[in-house]
Design a protein around this nucleic acid. Sequence first.
RNA 1: CGGACUGUAGUAUAACGGUAGUAUACACCCUUGGGGUGGGUGCGACCCGGGUUCAACUCCCGGCAGUCCGACCA
Length: 417
Amino acid sequence: MKQSQLFSKTSKKLSESEASKNAQFLLKGGFIDKSSAGVYSLLPLGLKVLNKINTIIREEMNAIGAEELFMPSLIQKKYWEKSNRWAVDVIYKTSTNPADSEKKDFEYGLGWTHEEVVTAIATRFINSYKDLPKAVYQIQTKFRAEARAQAGLLRGREFSMKDLYSFHESKEDLDKYYEKVIGAYKKIFKRLGLKFLVTEASGGAFTKEYTHEFQVLNPAGEDTVFYCQKCGFSQNQEIYKPEAHKDCDGQIESGRSIEVANVFKLGTKFTEAFGLNFLNEKGEKKPVIMGSYGIGPTRVMGTIVEEFSDEYGIIWPENIAPFKVHLVELKGKNPSKVQKACKSLYEKLNKAGIDVLYDDRDLSVGEKLNDADLIGIPNRVIISEKTLAQKKMELKPRNSKKVSMVSEKQLIKLLQK
RNA sequence: CGGACUGUAGUAUAACGGUAGUAUACACCCUUGGGGUGGGUGCGACCCGGGUUCAACUCCCGGCAGUCCGACCA
């Protein structure tokens, strides 16, 4: 990709009132555009990052036998009424019916979660213990009428969510799968480069058992968690019980954190509401037991920016960076020579399958280098008159100050690793 | 939902009860060429409604919108 062709541009200044780091850098770098409070467009650069996050999530979901599907956002009132959730205050509602605007039962709520829809679908396909267990997931846009959107991508009114739902014949089978999902989530966050706590939290109305949240310790977070470095114990502040941390002499610490995922044992709340039953081996009718498991990919993206940045901009982890390498052309007094060398390297990188952003723009040195820091691609390569004189190019990782001079062959080899 | 603050070019900001200034971005010209080079020309703005006033972007009221703090949050 040539940078001169990019749809977005970086901007120098942003409103000082936009305080959160992720909003600042993502807006300045041209990754996202703010449409209204808590509502963002993912621009091409940002979508590349989000897609990489989603690919990692998909791979780990598929690895635990979950199948991907895609459910609607426009969900008729009758679904929410069956589970008694039409009164939930975060639902965006509409009653617009193109055929008859007077007809009130034509009301919809925009999907803020999908237990109702997925359970209704499952009644078509789950009838026997032989049909269980099953697990399906989607990556979809959720709508929540948050009283207060805040901190850029960390709390939006419209945001991306991976929601997984599992169906089981017994509590034991649900427990087993629940642990499997926790294992998959650990892999996902490890691949995303995030350090996390698996935090116990209250199950609220659904279960007396603890549910689990994946929390990333970060001052930008809205939650407060208590945790022990030694044994890994961690509880959300809302339910924190010091006596739960008995068998370890490690020190309990607390900190602000961002909830990037959660796992829930739903039990039979929804399956009973929708009549999702199965016949067991004895021919007895039983309600299906359900779990739900969420990850917020856009929130994860914001969290990564909160975690990995410096005063100049973002430092994307390798696995989700929009590009592998940023090729910066510093034309100098001999533009044609430098340009020729850059174009040649650009073509070779493309041929070698190395995703490259080529800054071919006719701008000052400072602007180009600052933009490279802001956008945060993990490797920066400079070709200039100076480097050409040595018949080499300059390589600098975004996360270090060390600069090395390498040949074209060496560079391609290094980047292919 | 409560509190505080704020709405002026694409973006960021300034001043003023009487012609709205600057930076940046953008277009063109010159200059410069390893950390936002310097200069010139051009384009471009007062959230909406009402009130006060000879006159309102400015003061007052209402609305809408935004940011932050808090409450809320499967």
